[in-house]
């Protein structure tokens, strides 16, 4: 107990642990543990033959970057370049706010949601509309012991909200489109 100076006794001795657990204590000495200490200056240790790497060309337009960077780092990912309204929001978030500002991250999250709708529209336009049944993988439920797997778990309390998280934006989008259509219809009938 914490009220006395000695540490409470352990249930097993080192000998018992060594006999029971394969490899017990083989890395007891911190010198045997890798990446200790965290920082060891050795610039030639990891295969780089350059002091600064060659620069990757910007093939997909000006690459967005954090304003905390002094310049565009020499190598970067090329997945999903900025596009559409979500791209404009993201560009603004990167150009205007540092990583230290909540606005930076909240704008990026907002852009993610806009991107989802843009993706829905673009995919439908390409003739491959999104299918929430196959894309959510729920068809796996039938052969994955859905009831037994969930018995006695605390996360089932909030998992019931998942369909709302997935389906909510679809419902909202549908309601928005419907409201716009109704408004347009009324406007046209007034003119007529």
């Amino acid at each position: 107990m914490a009220y006395w100076p000695q540490k409470p006794p352990l249930p097993e001795t080192p000998e018992q642990l060594r006999a029971r657990i394969p490899g017990w204590g083989v890395d007891l000495d911190p010198k045997d543990r890798p990446s200790v200490p965290q920082e060891v200056f050795d610039p030639g240790a990891y295969g780089a033959r350059w002091e600064f790497p060659d620069r990757q060309p910007e093939r997909y337009g000006p690459r967005e970057r954090s304003i905390e960077h002094a310049f565009l780092p020499p190598v970067f990912g090329t997945s999903a370049p900025l596009h559409g309204v979500s791209g404009r929001i993201r560009r603004f978030a990167y150009d205007r706010f540092s990583e230290g500002r909540n606005a930076h991250w909240l704008l990026l999250i907002a852009a993610d949601r806009v991107d989802t709708f843009e993706g829905l529209l673009a995919s439908a336009a390409r003739g491959r509309p999104d299918d929430p049944v196959t894309e959510t993988g729920v068809l796996a439920e039938a052969r994955s012991h859905p009831i037994a797997s969930r018995a006695g778990r605390v996360d089932t309390h909030h998992q019931v909200l998942d369909p709302l998280v997935v389906g909510g934006p679809w419902v909202l989008a549908g309601a928005g489109v419907l409201a716009a259509a109704v408004a347009a219809g009324r406007a046209l009938s007034r003119r007529g």
Binding site: S35, Q38, E39, V40, F41, D42, P43, A45, Y46, G47, A48, W50, E51, F52, P53, R63, E64, R65, S66, E68, H69, L72, P73, P74, V75, F76, G77, Y94, E99
Partner: peptide, 29 residues
Amino acid sequence: ISCGSCFYCARGMLANCHNVNPNATAVGG
């Protein structure tokens, strides 16, 4: 993803490379 030569990689902090992530300075690639 690590360049092997930036301030961090040169010190063995290969998870914190500064030359591979334009989008954030707080995290590597």
